[in-house]
């Protein structure tokens, strides 16, 4: 397994943001994570890359148990470029004073690769996410929302990581750019990378993930093959979620149907 999480708990102060979350992703596999806003998806991502400390449970990344890693060890792991993370908010993850090109090159320089080679690689990756040459010398603040998002994706993939956690990596992309980004992720997966793909866009998740986990109030309430979760969700929250997705051809559940499912949810309460 490239990534294994077992019985993970995360607290913010006294608030329990994740409760006994377990999941695993093998090399060449993609796990889709969907769920309510505020259910702990980004918290899960941050825990896996060492940005928040779990209060219980275990995390193994690429064969190494990292749960009790110290900051120095995390830095060393990141330096190797083995695990990469795409933040939900591109503006928060990109240094406002660093040009697009330098942002994408940086992970390679940290690995100690020669500047020339790194710059070549960065340019190739930028082209694959359709970032124009002329954008490379700009600062993040001088880009559109979708251009910034593509920069963060290129930056995360430039080191050929073994494990990538992507938190809403296509939310700001138009359809054509989204297809391009998703195809790139599939190629990466087929080359053996383990991916965790967090998204509110159920079509994207259904299209790239092998399995899907549904997070609700900090716990996984359903997990299974992507097709099954999308076509025959069992848990009431999963049913509400899949049923609320509007599509171009079919109307989503109407207000009355949604209220009915909400009520059902209230009766059964959150995850144990």
């Amino acid at each position: 397994m490239s990534l294994e999480v077992s019985d993970l708990d995360v607290h913010y102060g006294r608030t329990r943001a994740l409760r006994r979350v377990s999941l695993s992703v093998a090399p060449g596999q993609t796990l889709g994570v969907i769920g309510e806003t505020g259910s702990g998806k980004s918290t899960l991502a941050r825990a896996v890359v060492g940005l928040v400390r779990p209060s219980a449970g275990r995390i193994t990344v690429d064969g190494e148990e990292v749960t009790r890693y110290r900051a120095r060890q995390w830095r060393a792991l990141r330096r190797r470029g083995v695990v990469q993370y795409v933040f939900q908010d591109p503006l928060r993850s990109l240094d406002p004073d660093v040009t697009v090109e330098d942002s994408i090159v940086e992970p390679l320089l940290i690995q100690g690769r020669p500047r020339r080679e790194a710059a070549d690689r960065a340019r190739r990756l930028a082209a694959r996410v359709h970032l124009d040459e002329e954008l490379l010398s700009r600062l993040p603040g001088e880009l559109s929302g979708g251009q910034r998002q593509r920069v963060t994706v290129a930056r995360a993939l430039v080191t050929d990581p073994r494990v990538v956690i992507l938190d809403e990596p296509v939310s700001a992309l138009d359809a054509a750019n989204r297809v391009r980004a998703l195809e790139l992720l599939k190629q990466l997966r087929d080359a053996g990378t383990a991916l965790v793909f967090i998204s509110h866009d159920l079509g994207s998740v259904a299209g790239v993930a092998d399995r899907i986990a549904v997070l609700y109030q900090g716990g996984i309430v359903e997990e299974g093959p992507a097709r099954t979760v999308v076509n025959a969700p069992r848990h009431p929250y999963a049913r509400l979620l899949v049923g609320s997705a509007p599509t171009l051809r079919s109307a989503a559940a109407d207000r009355a149907q949604r209220e009915e499912l909400r009520e059902l949810l209230q009766n059964i309460g959150g995850p144990a």
Binding site: D174, A175, A176, R178, V179, L182, D201, L202, G203, S204, A206, G207, A226, R227, V230, N231, A245, T247, L248, R249, S250
Partner: peptide, 28 residues
């Protein structure tokens, strides 16, 4: 959205449908 005339609009809708939820529902 349902009778687009311009080529780019058609492309946009087409690409949208490639990862539209309908598609994964139907395949099943």
């Amino acid at each position: 959205l349902y009778e687009p005339r311009h080529e780019y609009t058609r492309l946009l809708i087409d690409q949208h449908e490639r990862y539209g939820l309908d598609r994964f529902r139907e395949l099943d």
